[in-house]
């Protein structure tokens, strides 16, 4: 059920756009209005989420125990795992964001004969996660081709590196293969590993199916069922320059692709996918471990009225003296 519900949700989305474009002729809705709304929701939603996070106070630096913090001069500090300054934090964040350092530490628990517990390194999640995210980024950057007539030079470089193998025409992009393989692996991992399957929710499966459908429809459109690419570019250029046009006869598969990616963009800020922004606000990663050097005042400290001993003695001096309790001030 947890798997089937999101699957049918994606199928329903596809049926919706096919019905809307093929039979109800709502090209303008699916080709112009929904993409605009989706991008606006994406930007506004993401800003809203980040502002909401930023309004929660973070009371303490949270040192994680995976590295030696700055200590005595003869104890070597682990500068990337337990940084004490801004530069080290930038290094740790870069490793986390670009190379998924914490996933690299992923281990697998194994019950051996005995019974005996063994922990082994498990790099497959890290590898497929990294492959998936980088492919997605490169594919996103490549799509800039649809939104500019004169392409900046770096985009050409990325494109030619991605199609470096020169297989077939249109040339096969390596990232197209990698993203499909990686997402498929991530899905299979979810349903075959009993522990991961137990904690998986529809909110985990839905983005997987949606991304698989987006990538699948894109691959289908590029290599197999051709669409009118000139019409597609007219539409995308119209969107980007705020002069929307809807050419006729583009092909239904393009509208499926566009609608699914619009759904992904609109869904993004309100789902787990918002970890794209959230990773930058990970408290255990983005704060220097300088608890012993800098005094951190808890920002939500309630202003407590302190009654000092001096005030106490002032209040009760005579009574204390009369029963023989020593006082500091006569």
């Amino acid at each position: 059920m947890k798997t089937l519900f999101p699957l049918f949700a994606v199928i329903t989305l596809i049926v919706l756009v096919v019905a809307g474009v093929q039979y109800a002729n709502m090209q303008f809705l699916f080709g112009v209005i929904i993409p605009y709304l989706a991008v606006a929701t994406f930007v506004a939603g993401l800003i809203y989420r980040v502002m909401k996070w930023a309004s929660s106070p973070v009371p303490f630096r949270i040192p994680t125990t995976c590295g030696q913090e700055l200590s005595l001069p003869w104890i070597k500090q682990d500068k990337l795992e337990s940084p004490s300054g801004t530069l080290g934090v930038i290094g740790r964040m870069a490793l986390e964001v670009l190379l998924f350092r914490s996933l690299f530490r992923n281990i697998k628990l194994d019950m051996r004969e005995g019974p005996r517990i063994a922990y082994g390194s498990d790099k497959w999640l890290w590898l497929s996660g990294l492959a998936f995210h980088w492919s997605f980024l490169i594919i996103l950057i490549r799509h800039f081709r649809l939104f500019a007539i004169q392409l900046p030079y770096p985009i050409h470089v990325i494109e030619s590196l991605d199609s470096f193998l020169q297989i077939g025409v249109p040339m096969l992009y390596i990232t197209d293969v990698v993203i499909l393989a990686a997402v498929t692996y991530l899905f299979i991992r979810r349903i075959t590993n009993p522990l991961v399957r137990y904690i998986s929710l529809p909110a985990d499966y839905f983005p997987l199916f949606l991304i698989l459908a987006v990538a699948g429809s894109g691959v289908l459109m590029r290599y197999f069922t051709k669409v009118d690419v000139v019409g597609v570019k007219q539409l995308t250029m119209g969107l980007i320059s705020f002069r929307p046009v809807v050419p006729q006869g583009i092909g239904i598969i393009f509208y499926i692709h566009l609608f699914l990616i619009s759904v992904l963009f609109a869904y993004f800020p309100f789902s787990k996918l918002v970890h794209m922004a959230g990773v930058f606000l990970s408290p255990t990663r983005n704060m220097a471990n300088n608890n012993r050097m800098v005094r951190h005042v808890n920002p939500w400290d309630y202003p407590v009225h302190v009654h000092t001993y001096e005030e106490y003695e002032n209040d009760f001096r005579e009574k204390m003296k009369s029963v023989g309790i020593p006082v500091e001030k006569e």
Binding site: F144, F147, I149, G238, S241
Partner: peptide, 11 residues
């Protein structure tokens, strides 16, 4: 960036 880059492009 894409909106600024392609602003006013004559299609």
């Amino acid at each position: 960036f894409p909106f600024v880059y392609s602003r006013g492009t004559n299609i």
